[in-house]
Design a protein around this nucleic acid. Sequence first.
DNA 1: CAATACTTGCAACTAAGTTGCATATAGGGC
DNA 2: GCCCTATATGCAACTTAGTTGCAAGTATTG
Lengths: 145, 145
Amino acid sequence: MNERSDYINMLESNAVDPTPLREAVLMSIGEDSRPLAAAEIMAAVRSRMSINKVTLYRILDLLVGKGLVKRLSAGDRAYRYGMAKTRHHQAHPHFVCSRCGVMECLEPGLFCIDIRKFQTNSKRIIKYVDVRFEGICESCIKAQK
Amino acid sequence: MNERSDYINMLESNAVDPTPLREAVLMSIGEDSRPLAAAEIMAAVRSRMSINKVTLYRILDLLVGKGLVKRLSAGDRAYRYGMAKTRHHQAHPHFVCSRCGVMECLEPGLFCIDIRKFQTNSKRIIKYVDVRFEGICESCIKAQK
DNA sequence: CAATACTTGCAACTAAGTTGCATATAGGGC
DNA sequence: GCCCTATATGCAACTTAGTTGCAAGTATTG
């Protein structure tokens, strides 16, 4: 999807020192079409270099804090991390397979929710909406045939 | 909301032996307007009787398995448990406060998602849709003033 | 080159939930 | 009533995913 230099750029333009590990973490997330669990990111980074899990979690926290990465909940107990929405990357619903736990992105705009509508008749402040579909993914359907 | 006997009835009509602990767990969930975390259910039950955490989790698994209770994800690492949808209890979106973590139910029908629409242009089997709003709850807004 | 700040690693810890196994407790059959 | 089996509960130890404290390494800056 992107050049290495694009990731370095993203880091720098968010005032994050682009260390090799940070670059590798961001790239692992950015190069995958699906949001990944920390363990998957760890495996991806470790295929190229060595990283400690604490460092990984701290880099993830940093990237989430800087708004580069979005922390998603998959309905199980492990977060998934995906690239945050940018000009080229709209908000979209996600799908989680209840058999294998994989998370996939669905097309944006399949439906849109107007947060302001809720805002008016609510005493709460609403910031995000998260739409998650659950079911069986394509490869699990194939596998059981 | 309900009589004790209603909960016993629910259990029996789902072929679950209505032991005092199961009844207390189901009642704790049913009498609260919000879906509760396991720790909250534990506290509620323990105010009346003694229960071990393993027993609680096993009862929760059983009730979820029998379709009496729904396991919800709040975006943090603890599940919430709420009464499953019945004739009198429609599916509805939830709200989670990102400050205190409380989960609340929103009115059903504020928007409806047609699962079949997704089904047609998807190679996946979709079973549920989960809509979760995130923001600041009323009492946290008051607290900061 | 020393002082300081930032980054990474290691070990130990935490929260939420799970597993294995032992001990109740409840019904059936005789 | 007593034995046998099935189900329910409890206790301890374990697991997973993530966090904290602190030490050591690296970089930057005056």
